[in-house]
């Protein structure tokens, strides 16, 4: 278990609200982007993550965390995201993706779901390898992947910025993902 993890548990157990808040800040960005990768909507992702952090805090006395804090947290976010996709209550308000499509997304995730452990997705080694493999992508492909995943630009935004057609951006994104999957299949 790494130090922030341990600290997080200590803060939860001892009811150190400020300490917990400080640690939440360090995890928030990753948590939101992770949630967004599933629900595909920034505001919703933030709401889900805030809910999860709040739930962890209010239920701190009932929770027993056997694995690392992070893997518990990310599992919780994962579940919460799927719950959100399943429910049709809030999606209607947001109206960015139809209820039907959201349900389908959830179903696909559910059918496929074998336990995605946080440890598997995130370790220093996996991080270094992934960063290296991204570095190896052909220039255009890498640029598109970086703009999409790290700078959170939409396809039309990327197309405008790089002066490319929308279909080129989409094709290159598929290409990047396929190459990364091939390279990472032994690590992740």
């Amino acid at each position: 278990m790494n130090p922030p993890d341990e600290e997080m548990l200590v803060c939860l157990r001892s009811g150190d609200e400020r300490g917990y808040g400080r640690l939440v800040v360090t995890l928030q960005e990753a948590a939101c982007l992770y949630a967004k990768s599933i629900v595909l909507h920034t505001v919703t992702a933030h709401e889900i993550v805030n809910d999860v952090f709040l739930k962890l805090w209010t239920n701190r006395e009932q929770i027993t965390i056997k694995s690392s804090f992070r893997s518990y947290l990310f599992r919780m976010i994962h579940n919460q995201c799927c719950d959100y996709l399943r429910s049709n209550k809030r999606s209607a308000e947001l109206n960015f993706i139809s209820i039907e499509d959201m349900k389908l997304r959830q179903e696909v995730f559910e059918i496929a779901d074998t336990d995605t452990s946080f440890e598997k997705l995130y370790s220093e080694q996996a991080e270094t390898n992934l960063a290296r493999e991204i570095g190896k992508l052909p220039d255009q492909c890498r640029e598109i992947f970086i703009l999409s995943r790290f700078e959170q630009l939409s396809y039309p935004e990327i197309a405008t910025r790089l002066n490319l057609s929308l279909s080129t951006v989409k094709t290159q994104m598929v290409r990047a993902m396929v190459k990364l999957r091939d390279a990472m299949k032994d690590f992740i």
Binding site: P4, T26, L27, E29, A30, L33, Y34, K36, S37, I38, T116, K120, L121, Y122, A126, E127, L130, A131, I134, F145, R149, F150, M177, L180, R181, M184, I188
Partner: peptide, 12 residues
Amino acid sequence: DVWLASSLLGRF
């Protein structure tokens, strides 16, 4: 997994 892992990359 690659998709999710890339959302975590460099974010901590």
